[in-house]
Computed example of a mutant assay.
Amino acid sequence: MKDTYLTDATDRMVPSGGSFTRPRRFAVAEPLPDEVVLDLDAVQVPATVDAPLDAAPRDLWQLLHAQEPGKDQHILPGSQAEAEFRATDVSRAFDTLRTRLRQTMRQNGWRNIGVASPTGGCGNTFTAANLAASLARVPSSRTVLMDLNMRNPGLAHTLDMDASATGELRDFLAGDVAISDYILRASDTLAVGLGQAPQYDAAEILQDPATLESLAEMRAALRPDAVIYDLPPLLSYDDAAAFLPQLDGVLLVSDGTQTMARHIKECERVLDGQVPLLGVILNRARASSIESY
Rank of each mutant, 00 (worst) to 15 (best):
L251D: 01
D160P: 01
P276M: 09
C267S: 13
V270I: 15
A226Q: 07
D50N: 09
N149W: 02
L53W: 03
R12S: 05
S140T: 10
M105G: 09
M218G: 08
S91H: 14
D11H: 01
F126R: 01
M260N: 11
A83P: 03
R98H: 12
Q67L: 07
P52A: 06
T48A: 14
V43Q: 04
M161V: 04
D176E: 15
R12A: 08
Y237E: 07
D54H: 12
D238H: 07
D72V: 01
T21Q: 02
L190S: 02
A285D: 07
G18V: 07
L60E: 13
K265Y: 07
T211M: 15
P233Y: 09
H263A: 13
R102N: 08
G120R: 06
P224E: 09
T21V: 04
F126G: 00
P46N: 04
Y200L: 14
T99D: 10
E204S: 05
D176L: 15
G123S: 05
Y5G: 11
P46Y: 02
K71M: 08
S164D: 11
S292V: 10
L222S: 09
A132W: 00
A210M: 14
L252D: 03
L234N: 10
I183W: 07
D238G: 11
Q44F: 04
S180Y: 00
S288A: 12
G167T: 01
I228N: 06
V227A: 11
V275R: 14
S117Q: 08
A216V: 10
L251C: 05
A116F: 02
A66P: 13
V45W: 03
M105V: 10
L53Q: 13
E291W: 02
C122P: 04
D3I: 15
D54L: 09
V138P: 00
D208A: 10
R102T: 14
E82K: 07
Y293H: 13
S79A: 09
S79Q: 02
Q199P: 00
A261H: 10
S134P: 04
S16Y: 00
P118K: 10
Y229W: 15
P198W: 01
V14W: 05
L252Y: 06
G256P: 13
V253T: 11
A83H: 13
L247S: 13
R98L: 04
A178W: 00
M105S: 14
I179P: 07
I264Q: 11
A156H: 11
A83N: 14
V253F: 08
A55Y: 00
A226W: 06
P232E: 12
N149V: 01
P23C: 09
W110L: 15
T7D: 03
T143D: 02
H263E: 15
T4A: 11
T7K: 03
T158N: 04
L38C: 08
A221C: 14
T211Y: 13
L235M: 12
V37D: 12
P33L: 02
G195P: 06
A285P: 03
